[in-house]
């Protein structure tokens, strides 16, 4: 061998000290701060409003798990969110089950749908994957319209009882409900965080960066992508089911295609492929929708303009841009 210390391509790149520091350390502290902040939140903000944002933040984060870390743009996440919402609302209303069981049933339904839809769509990439997921979600929408016995059609399932958590804690109390939603949100976010930093998550990101290379190393990439989609669908379902219990309704809005657009918008505004981006996006969009209601239909136009501005000015989204400034993954 020649002298192995001879450098290859002298030009660039020393190992940057910033990159050597473990990004997970910072992310852990942000999680702690986030938890403390959310514990205090109901004392200075309307709890129901915070819970709405938490549900959408979890929904967007689930979408981002697939979009940002597997590289698949799903245009049909409303199917998982909405159907889980229906199942949770229906079982909570008509079956003798406690709310956590209703939420689990909704989540399980979405997970199963993810498996079936994934098996159909996962071979496609890019725009074709987006189109197939959209078509499947539309199928779910029309199913919801055609089965009024289950969904109550245009009326939707209304007056869903919040019930008693574990049969003990009365969720009619907003603060008790808030504690449950916060626990679900934190649990879902920590699961996403764990998935991203697991050996499986590393392989997912490898596939996202260069699928042919992953195949040439012997990875059966479609199985990895499918599991990524199933997890994403399941967590989106968890968000939808929780939303049904919080607002005590499940309607056609939840399965409408525009609901699939919400997490896309939130993720792009907040920062795709970042842990905390989608929730920041959800908060920004949520606050906007709440405080700009006076704008009426101009709200959509304003949202569109902000979206265009974000895509043009902050490609990486809010959190992605901050992450670049401090040179950390957040």
């Amino acid at each position: 061998m020649t002298d192995t210390s001879a450098p290859i391509g002298l030009t660039a790149a020393r190992a940057t000290p910033a990159a050597e520091r473990d990004p997970k350390q910072l992310q852990r502290w942000i999680f702690v701060g986030l938890f403390l902040f959310l514990c205090a939140a109901p004392w200075f903000a309307y709890p129901i409003f915070v819970m709405k944002i938490l549900c959408f933040a979890l929904f967007a984060s689930a979408f981002n798990l697939l979009f940002g870390y597997v590289g698949l743009l799903s245009f049909g996440h409303a199917a998982y969110f909405g159907m889980a919402s229906y199942v949770a609302a229906y079982t909570a209303k008509f079956w003798p089950v406690t709310p956590e069981i209703a939420i689990l049933l909704g989540t399980a339904t979405a997970t199963l749908m993810g498996l079936v839809f994934g098996a159909i769509a996962i071979r496609r990439q890019g725009i074709y994957f987006a189109m197939i997921t959209l078509a499947l979600a539309q199928l779910v929408y029309f199913f919801a319209i055609q089965t009024p016995k289950f969904t109550h059609g245009e009326d939707g399932l209304q007056g869903v009882p919040r019930g008693y958590l574990f049969g003990i804690f009365d969720l009619a109390n907003d603060m008790t409900l808030y504690a449950m939603v916060l626990a679900i949100f934190m649990g879902g976010m920590l699961l996403i965080h764990r998935v991203i930093h697991s050996p499986f998550g590393q392989i997912l990101q490898a596939i996202r960066d260069n699928e042919p290379r992953a195949i040439s190393l012997g990875y059966r990439t479609q199985r990895y992508k499918l599991l990524g989609l199933v997890l994403s669908a399941g967590i989106a379902g968890l968000a939808g089911a929780t939303k049904a219990i919080v607002f005590q309704v499940a309607t056609l809005v939840d399965v409408h295609w525009s609901m699939s657009g919400e997490p896309i918008l939130m993720t792009l505004v907040g920062g795709m492929g970042t842990i905390f981006g989608p929730m920041v996006g959800a908060a920004v969009i949520g606050v906007m929708q709440n405080y700009m209601q006076g704008l009426g239909s101009w709200l959509t136009v304003t949202q569109g303009l902000i979206f265009i501005f974000c895509v043009l000015a902050f490609r990486a989204g809010i959190v992605g841009t901050i992450g670049r400034l401090i040179r950390r993954d957040i």
Partner: peptide, 28 residues
């Protein structure tokens, strides 16, 4: 794998030799 570090690139390859890596609940 562009966005992974050199070490992570090699870990992903070595993981393949050690078997499939579907364990999404384990830490890095």
């Amino acid at each position: 794998f562009d966005r992974l570090t050199v070490l992570q690139n090699l870990r992903v390859a070595l993981q393949r030799k050690a078997g499939d890596g579907f364990r999404f609940w384990e830490t890095e």
